[in-house]
Nucleic acid binder design. Structure first.
Length: 571
DNA sequence: GCCGTTTTCGGCCCGACTGTTTTCAGTCG
């Protein structure tokens, strides 16, 4: 049983309770629990079976504990089954539609028997929604649009897509006269691995000018709303972008507010309330007389509630407020701390550039070392190398080192971990490499115990330095394979194997919360791009973002070390 | 349903916008 399945059950309970009009705070408890469980590294089923106590997890109390135990034991949750009897499960899907909340979903079901997206669409097309209380023709139109949107399957976007458009829009809007500031906020600013939309904040003397420019952007498909303070557009690829124009004096409060996360904001506001303050997107106010105290910068907002500045990547209500209060915020790693890149591919296998071209680009990025790590033979589609071919390739690397100065090219390989946990190449050739990455590219469907055993066997091989993309997931495309990550991490710690944060924007593997757990267990990390072209070496920033979201400091990451120290660590 | 250096009971963030309304409910972030 995966944690995600347990979290999904709690989310469904929350959705149904919402539709039934239950106590909103009870609903929030379920949603909070679902979020917390989704962030856990440790598998709850294993924890329960090992006699651990889920109630030690914040937001999990007696009732949730009992349900978790029940779900782990029976695969089901009786409370949810009871709820489903009264409210058809199809209704929760309707909640995913833009503009539809619990009240309208209930109304649609009670009055028209709508219990699916299909039926909703038919009812709307037949003009049967406009007669319902609180609905009219416009609502009907909006719902039809939402159905279309839903069908298009446009949900979340990888962070890298956000970068493409945030950058383009900043350049596009930046030269509008009167624009003083532009800041993308939201999950993008928190460097969340996926984003639902893009929020851009601006200070501009004449807001209508920047709004006009914004809604005329070349990639616009629809203008959803256009006003003096807020406009929304949808791009051709489905991404919604909001632009808000704000005042100087409340800019910091707004930036904090629109950066979120929602859970972080709630926690900050609760804290403010206890201090007799009120925090909103307009500033920090004294509660008793609404006197405005501050709000021009984020630093001021944090100071007003007695906290140092909390970096956006940490604002997930994962303990950052307590840490800030105790002066124990981590000194997060920066891109500038990175001294080398320890995974990349060349034309020898499935890369686009030569060894030298990769090294030159890395040198331009300011690195002092790179490891060339082409695939081993098992990865046939990539033209993986056998022992002979790798031996030749290593000679090529030696040669390339003679043709470039100012950067050291390390000899490496990404060797496949075969189904039984043995490696795809003989130890003898692996020993000639400075950097050996072990990774899984096949047989993703093993049972958890078998996969765990397989990977740990590879970790125990003294030739392996780094476990690459440890969970095999592809964001929005492929779930991680089933593996007991905590056991893998412990094995890595015990055998001095480094765990990778793969910076490829489709992977980001380990993910943030898991990297944090690994570090807490004493593991070292490597942040590597897995670049298949010279240009892709620039993706390092995505790995650094992930590390920052995982509370990682430079000292936890071996490719922030000078070459000698890094090599010493690998050996 | 969760939680507690004021509390084991009584709290639980805050405001804008939209569309439908004669004063507001619902949704969203």
């Amino acid at each position: 049983m995966e944690n995600k399945s347990i979290a999904d059950i709690f989310t469904e309970i929350a959705d149904i309770l919402d539709i039934q009009g239950e106590n909103p705070f009870r609903i929030r408890s379920y949603r909070n629990a679902a979020r917390t469980i989704g962030d856990l590294t440790e598998n709850l089923e294993n924890l329960v079976k090992a006699g651990g106590n889920p109630e030690e997890i914040p937001g999990i109390g007696k009732s949730m504990h009992e349900k978790i135990v029940e779900i782990v034991k029976t695969g089901k949750c009786q409370s949810l089954e009871e709820l489903k009897k009264k409210t058809p499960p199809g209704l929760t899907e309707l909640l995913r539609l833009d503009g539809l909340g619990p009240k309208k979903v209930k109304l649609l079901y009670d009055e028209l028997g709508v219990d699916s997206v299909d039926r909703l669409e038919k009812a709307a097309q037949a003009g049967r929604l406009r007669n319902l209380a609180g609905m009219g023709e416009k609502t009907e139109e909006k719902i039809l649009k939402s159905v279309e949107q839903f069908r298009a399957g446009i949900g979340r976007f990888k962070l890298s897509i956000g970068f493409t458009y945030a950058g383009a829009l900043e350049r596009y809007l930046g030269d509008v006269p009167g624009v003083k500031r532009l800041d993308p906020a939201g999950s993008f600013r928190r460097r969340s691995e996926t984003i639902g939309d893009l929020d851009i904040l601006a200070i501009c003397a004449q807001s209508s000018k920047v709004m006009d420019r914004f809604t005329a952007y070349g990639e616009v498909k629809d203008v959803i709303a256009k006003g003096e303070t807020k406009s929304s557009i949808r791009l051709r690829n489905g991404l919604q972008v909001d632009l808000r124009v704000l005042d100087d004096e409340s800019y910091g409060a707004a930036l904090h507010y629109f950066t979120g996360s929602k859970a972080h904001n709630v926690a900050i506001r609760e804290r403010a309330k206890e201090m007799g303050l009120k925090v909103s997107e307009y500033g920090v106010f004294r509660a008793r007389d609404e006197k405005r105290l501050t709000g021009a910068s984020e630093e001021e907002v944090f100071r007003a509630v007695g906290l140092p500045f909390i970096p956006p990547e940490l604002r997930e209500d994962r303990g950052e407020i307590a840490a800030a209060e105790e002066g124990k915020l981590p000194r997060l790693i920066d891109l500038a701390d990175i001294r080398g890149d320890l995974q990349m591919h060349t034309v020898a296998t499935d890369g686009k550039n030569s060894i030298l071209e990769m090294a030159k680009k890395a040198k331009d990025l300011g690195y002092s070392y790179v490891a060339i790590t082409d695939h081993s033979q098992a990865v046939r589609v990539a033209g993986g190398l056998n022992e002979k071919a790798l031996a030749r390739h290593l000679k090529e690397i030696d040669k390339a080192n003679g043709e470039i100065s100012g950067i050291r090219i390390l000899k490496g390989v990404e060797v496949d971990i075969l189904g039984d946990g043995t490696l795809d190449l003989k130890d003898q050739i692996l020993k000639e490499c400075d950097v050996v990455l072990g990774s899984v590219h096949s047989r993703f469907n093993l049972e958890e115990a078998e996969m765990t055993k397989r990977i740990i066997r590879a970790i125990k091989n003294p030739c392996v330095h780094i476990l690459a993309h440890p969970t095999g997931r592809l964001i929005l495309e492929r779930e991680p394979y089933r593996v007991n990550l905590k056991e893998v991490m412990q094995a890595a710690v015990d055998h001095g194997v480094v765990l990778e944060i793969n910076a490829y924007p489709d992977r980001l593997d380990l993910r943030d919360a898991d990297a944090r757990m690994a570090r807490d267990m004493g593991a070292r990390l490597a942040i590597s791009t897995d670049a298949h072209s010279a240009l892709q070496l620039e993706m390092m920033k995505f790995g650094v973002f992930t590390a920052r979201r995982g509370w990682i400091e430079a000292k936890d990451v071996i490719n922030t070390y000078p070459l000698d120290q890094m090599l010493k660590f690998l050996r």
